[in-house]
């Protein structure tokens, strides 16, 4: 089963410039790909298209030959660049985590999530702490593909290494495919088997 973008065209609005023009992209389960490209070149847009948050004006996104399912938890999970914008500010973190699926204690421990944080609101946590919740939420369901859009840019290097090591171990165990969007070439070569540019 592979995740494909086939000749995708996308622009915001009816008259905006094309962000993606005739772009194809392919990756398999178990593959680890890094996407390196300058800012504003459509990396986040491609990530959102692949995860089904946006639909292309032309072209198709196919998962194992079929369009992404419209119901239930999406097998392609996206972890966003700005965690503070990816959570409901009026929900406690417990409820936010439960959206992804049942809580797994060992995953919370591996990510360094303190149990005391579960009853707090997103505003009471730092960006790095919040991002761990977003990672846990994405891993809680049965995702086959994980799209990581600059997930560690706001983390300190020790936390970055911790989170990536957890993610890579989890991906290895479940045979997930990982697409990492990043600006850091060192990080890209460290985590990916294949580096793509836009």
């Amino acid at each position: 089963m592979s995740l494909n973008a086939e000749h995708v065209f996308f622009r915001y609005g009816r008259k905006g410039p094309w962000i993606l023009e005739d772009r194809s992209f392919h990756f398999d389960r178990g593959e680890r790909v890094a996407l390196l490209a300058p800012s504003g070149s459509g990396k986040t847009t491609l990530a959102m298209l692949l995860a089904g948050y946006l639909t292309p004006q032309k072209g198709r996104i196919l998962l194992g030959g079929a369009p992404l399912p419209g119901k239930g938890a999406c097998p392609v999970q996206l972890i966003c660049q700005h965690p503070e914008k990816a959570v409901n500010p009026r929900w406690r973190l417990e409820k936010i985590l439960a959206e992804g699926g049942p809580l797994r204690g060992e995953l919370l421990d591996a990510l360094g999530i303190e149990r005391a944080w579960l009853t707090r609101f997103p505003l009471e946590l730092s960006g790095g702490e919040l991002q761990r919740f977003c990672v846990a939420r994405a891993l809680a369901g049965g995702a086959d593909y994980l799209i990581c859009d600059e997930i560690s840019a706001m983390l300190d290097v020790i936390t970055q290494a911790q989170i990536w090591n957890v993610l890579l171990a989890e991906a290895e165990k479940r045979g997930m495919g990982i697409l990492a969007v990043t600006h850091n070439r060192h990080l890209a070569t460290r985590i990916a088997d294949r580096i793509e540019t836009l």
Partner: peptide, 23 residues
């Protein structure tokens, strides 16, 4: 030193444990 060693270009090795919480 641990920060330096956790950089992707110098080992990518995290240290165990977590920063203590303010409480």
């Amino acid at each position: 030193k641990a920060l330096w060693r956790a950089l992707p270009q110098n080992g990518f090795t995290p240290i165990d444990g977590f920063q203590p919480v303010a409480v």
